[in-house]
């Protein structure tokens, strides 16, 4: 009888533990059981990326369409080269699309917002988004404001 109690409670314990892991996966981390969406790579050069990091979001009209996979300094242009993984089903980004670094909220995280242009041709894997707008750096903004008010 005693052995049976032990066996049943150990079984229940293992179940509870597995259930806890499942809760962590589904409820806390919001894991989707579906496959990760297929992606293709796009690049963009920015004058200044501000606080953008790898894993930052890439959005269009506020909808998530990919994420930043890596950031490096391009030695030729001396600009930041941002590599993005864009979901495969977003295959309508025209070649004159523009990418700008935006901030969520006043102090929130930074992300890339993509706006589609008017060209017929679309961006393929490995292409560059040429039209970019850098992050707003508060110090530069304040500097410009001070400079303007002095020159007036």
């Amino acid at each position: 009888m005693r052995t049976r109690v032990i066996e049943v409670s150990v079984g229940a314990f293992l179940l509870v533990g597995a259930l806890a892991l499942l809760m962590l996966a589904l409820n806390v981390s919001g894991l989707k059981l579906a496959d990760q969406p297929q992606t293709y790579k796009l690049y963009a050069r920015f004058e200044n990326i501000g606080g953008l990091t790898a894993r930052s979001k890439v959005t269009m009209s506020g909808v998530l369409i990919g994420k930043v996979s890596s950031i490096s300094l391009d030695p030729q242009t001396l600009m930041a080269r941002v590599e993005m993984d864009i979901h495969e089903n977003v295959d309508f980004l025209s070649t004159d699309s523009s990418a700008s670094i935006l901030t969520a909220g006043l102090l929130g995280e930074q992300y890339i917002g993509v706006t589609v242009g008017a060209e017929e041709e679309v961006l393929k894997n490995g292409d560059y988004i040429e039209d970019t707008q850098s992050a707003l750096v508060l110090e530069e903004l304040v500097g410009k404001f001070l400079f303007n008010s002095v020159s007036e």
Binding site: F13, V16, G17, A20, L24, V28
Partner: peptide, 15 residues
């Protein structure tokens, strides 16, 4: 075997 399960339970109860 036990500690990873206990840690998962800890996290769930804590959340």
């Amino acid at each position: 075997i036990s500690l990873p399960l206990l840690a998962a339970v800890f996290a769930v109860v804590g959340v």
